[in-house]
Design a protein around this nucleic acid. Structure first.
Lengths: 205, 205
DNA sequence: TTAGAATCGTCAACAAATTCACAAATGAAT
DNA sequence: ATTCATTTGTGAATTTGTTGACGATTCTAA
């Protein structure tokens, strides 16, 4: 599909295209153009055409893109045309809020287990899940062949848990802990830190 | 301070430097080097020196950087050497989890009010705050001269609330809603969407 | 006092990312 | 049937971002 690897910045924009296409579809639209997509995403139309061109030809000259078809192709490219099972580590306020969030399942990411190491949290019901002992993590990861994890533990525990996840074969970590993780090069980390966001924006105020 | 504007990618790395410096300080270290910072942040040492050089000369040849001093300078550059008041819009699971999170206040971001439009949520206590009617937002923003907001409402409500925030003079929005917002060019938006993160990483699996 | 190791700040070289601009194709309107 | 307004996909040009390399400085230790 991709002879020479497509760069990270391109891959990171594809989910935004997908999200906008879903939005347009809900509006009842069936076709769109790189220009319209660009305007609504605050990107240039050339950028969008170029990004898509790394993966194939999905549009029709003079007409634009069929929204449903382009969605389908993007899901295929991103490997989200199948469900993924995901484990959540940490049953604090954040971990629990994540389990209650419907947005993951809507996009095919099933949060199938939540773990914590605090005895008073183990056994607690969170949405449709029961908090499990972190000691049971290896078994669950192995049995369900989990490849993705959400890390929602305090900063001081994050690196230790990350090490464990990597050893268990997890290859993608969505990290909410405010710390840069050190992981093997075959493991991906996506960082979410709201404080970093506010600090970046404060610069411009 | 910055003759020709410093690019966004550079600004977005500064909080990571700051975060790492705080971490090192907790480890008891007092000085560091661009090389050490680079290794721990998975960046090149040249990158770090280059980034800092846009703002001045903070290191000492042969020695490196004084951690406390560099922290202080970075806080000054980012305008986080003062507290910022921030409002939270949306008192769902996410909004409530954010109010409970101590990480904002630790970095000088004070969540001073939380709003919702649902009658059954208004009046509810969340941490040290009481959920207020969204109708009271203009008054609070004006009285406390708020410039930053966290948007934690459902996707379908997000653009409407964002419009209101912009009209009220808010200049920085931390957006958790899974939608690309259209805002005036003088307003910054920092996007947090965990699903986008998982989708990006799924590409590599 | 001097030698040597470490490190910064910066200019130039290099690489990556974005934009430009246009041929080719499409569909609508006359 | 022909014209015209759109729109794609892409190679080239341009812009932006990263890395290399080195003079200058600092500290340590013999």
């Amino acid at each position: 599909m991709a002879a020479q690897p497509v760069s990270d910045v391109v891959i990171n924009r594809l989910p935004l295209y997908l999200r906008m296409l879903e939005f347009m579809q809900k509006e009842g639209k069936t076709i769109t153009s790189s220009q319209e997509l660009g305007e609504r995403l605050a990107l240039s139309s050339a950028q969008i055409r170029k990004d898509l061109s790394y993966f194939g030809e999905f549009g029709k000259q003079g007409t634009g893109y069929n929204i449903e078809y382009l969605q389908k192709m993007l899901r295929h490219i991103l490997h989200v045309d199948r469900p993924w099972d995901v484990v959540v580590i940490g049953a604090g306020d954040l971990g629990r809020a994540l389990v209650h969030y419907q947005g993951f399942a809507e996009q095919g990411f099933n949060l199938v287990a939540i773990f914590d190491n605090a005895p008073q949290k183990i056994g607690m019901t969170v949405g449709h899940l029961v908090v499990q002992n972190i000691a049971d993590l290896p078994q669950v990861v192995h049995e369900k062949q989990i490849e993705m994890a959400v890390l929602a533990v305090p900063a001081q525990a994050a690196q230790g848990v990350a090490n464990q996840l990597c050893e268990l074969g997890i290859r993608a970590i969505l990290n909410y802990a405010p710390i840069t993780l050190t992981v093997p090069s075959n493991v991906r980390v996506y960082y979410i830190d709201p404080v970093v966001g506010l600090q970046s924006m404060a610069y411009y105020l």
